[in-house]
Amino acid sequence: MSVHLEPVRVRTGSDDTEGHLVFAADLLVAVLVRLSDDHEEDAGKWFLEAGFDGADDPVKPKFADLDEAQEWIRRRLVGH
C-alpha cells in the first residue's frame, strides 16, 4: 500500500505547527506534526497527531523521521 504526504500547517495549541496530511489511495489516514524545540530530546521527531482506521493508537507514537512514520502507518493499515 502506498501512502503520500501533503504539507500542512496544524493548529495544535502549541508551537508544533509544521505537519503533513498522510493519504492512502486518496483517503486521509493520518496527520503528522513535527515536534518543536519545546519538546527538548523529542524535538524534530514526527508525532502522530491523528490517525484513522488502523493507523491509530490510544497513546500516539513518535517517529524519528517521516520514513519511519510512513512505514508504521502502512503496516497498521495493512494489518487492519
Binding site: T12, G13, S14, D16, L35, D38, H39, D42, F47, P58, V59, K60, P61, K62
Partner: peptide, 18 residues
C-alpha cells in the same frame, strides 16, 4: 504523568505549557 492519564508525553508537555 502520561502513563497515568492515558496521554502521550507530547500531550503532557503541551498541557503543562498551557
Amino acid at each position: 504523568l502520561g502513563d497515568a492519564l492515558g496521554l502521550s508525553n507530547v500531550h503532557v508537555n503541551r498541557t503543562l505549557r498551557e
